[in-house]
Structure formats: C-alpha cells, structure tokens
Simulated assay, not measured.
Amino acid sequence: MRSVITALHVLDAVAERQPIGVSDLARAMDIPKSSVQRALRALESAGWIRSVAPEQGSGWVLTTKAGDLAQHIAGDLGVREAALPVMAELRDRTGEEVHLTIREDQEVVVIERVESTHPVRIHWPAGTRSPCHASANGKAILAHLRPADLAVALPGPLPGFTESTITAPEKLRAELAAVRARGYAVARSELRADIASVAAPILSPSGTPIAALSVFLPMHRLDDDTAPLGELVRANAQRIAAAVATR
C-alpha cells in the first residue's frame, strides 16, 4: 500500500513540475531517490508518464492518459445535465424508456433514466448494473475503447445469460467492429430474453467514450429493422457529446 501511495504522490509531483528528473523529484518530495525511481518505473509501465529527450527539457512528463482520465471525469460530472433534456425528447419520440450509463470495469451502470410512456414496461432503475458484453450500452462503449482498456473490460471468459449472449471473444470483437462502423449497438435478448436495447456512445472530443445513451424496451416492441432507431439514438448521443464538450 505504501508503494502505491508513493507512486500517486510522485505522479502529482511530476504533473506540477514537468519535465523533472529523479534527483529533483527526490529533493522536492524529501524521499529517497531509490523510492522515486521505483515509482517512476511503475508509472511508466502503466502508461501514466514518459521520459523526454534533453532537447525537450529532459526528465519526466505526463502522457495523454492523464488527459483521457480527466475528460472521463469531466464528462461524468457534466453529462447528466446535458443528457436529461435530450433523453426526454428521445422518450417522447419513441415512447420507450431511455437510459444514460457509464462503464465501471466490466459493467455498465444506469446513472439516469426517463420512463417509458407505455403501460407495459420493464422496471430497470438507476443504479442497475449489466455486464458490458451482454448489453447494448456496454457494447457501444467497448467498441470505442483502446486495446489496453478493452483488455481490462474483457479480462476473461464471457458468461452467458441467454442463448443470444455473445460469449466467444472473436465473435464479440467482430460485433464491436460492426458497432464502431455503424455508430450504434443493438442487444436482442442477450441479458434477459424479454428485453432489448439500442445504444450509442457519448464520446469526448478525443474519441474516448464517457457514457452511452440507449432506448430500452421489451423485446416484442423492437422492430426487425433497427437502423431508424439506431440512427436516432446515435444522433442524440452526438448532441449530448457536443453539449458536454462546450461546458
């Protein structure tokens, strides 16, 4: 635990003083040079920092990974406010429940919802978690992750929940490529036999997925041709992304 805390303090110090060398870091933090070197190696291995050449100032600087994290946090804080009016409009156009989700490790979590106007609906409250590979929201986000982040989101065997769940990694990767190409994901009876959803990612300006927007409905109300609904969800996800980017 102590080494983790030291590494985080070193990361803070690099951010404040970059570019900065090992000796200067050790003096500024008043800790042994060997401890600083171990922390720097760990942070470099994890992709948080990189060394720069003497002509660029020498020492250590942050990588873009820190910026991606900041964008994700900013998006989570601002995305709810930006999304709610768009979600209400999307519900009014479709009559179906609309969800806003974020990814946490191997799952997506509903952080906002707007209820369906139909008398027959499925109760799916805020805070509900779903495996990424078995939901449209999850697949919409997974399709836009960097390879290293995708490996974290899909660390091992994919559990099946229904006969329609994609459990073969190669089949899922092909599905994610298709999702990325068309801009939206579809889940038909993949988590439960009676539910379906169509989702699109909400992307930061750098292309990092910060959330996903989806229409959530009973399976019997999903048309065979999902393209019109998919394009509608995609367009509204882009509206939210544009609003978040200006905040």
Score class of each variant (00 low, 15 high):
T226P: 11
Y184M: 02
S135Y: 03
A53F: 15
A153P: 00
P147I: 12
K139G: 01
R103G: 00
E107D: 13
E55Q: 13
T64D: 15
V36C: 03
W124A: 09
P228D: 02
P169H: 14
T226M: 11
S45E: 14
A42W: 06
Y184P: 04
T226Q: 15
S197I: 00
D76R: 00
A245N: 01
A140P: 13
L222W: 03
S206W: 03
S214R: 09
I102T: 13
G160T: 08
H99N: 14
P169T: 07
P125D: 08
V61N: 08
M87S: 05
A177V: 11
D68E: 13
A178C: 03
T94M: 06
L77Y: 04
A42D: 10
P125L: 05
A83T: 02
L84T: 10
S206D: 02
R103V: 01
F161R: 07
V198R: 10
G75C: 04
V52T: 06
I240E: 03
A148E: 14
L217N: 11
H99P: 03
T162I: 12
G183N: 04
K33N: 02
S58K: 13
R129L: 09
D68F: 12
A241Y: 14
T64E: 11
A39V: 09
E115P: 05
V152S: 01
E170C: 04
A74P: 01
G78R: 15
I20D: 07
I202D: 01
M219T: 13
V244Y: 00
E89H: 08
R38N: 07
I141Q: 15
D225E: 07
R17Y: 11
A199E: 07
M1C: 03
T165F: 08
Q18G: 02
L40M: 06
A28K: 10
P205L: 07
L229D: 10
L25E: 10
L232P: 04
E175C: 04
V109C: 05
L84K: 10
E170N: 14
P131M: 08
T94A: 06
L77D: 06
A39T: 14
E81H: 05
D224H: 14
L203D: 07
G160C: 06
G21Y: 09
L8V: 09
V179P: 14
A241D: 10
R121V: 10
Q18Y: 07
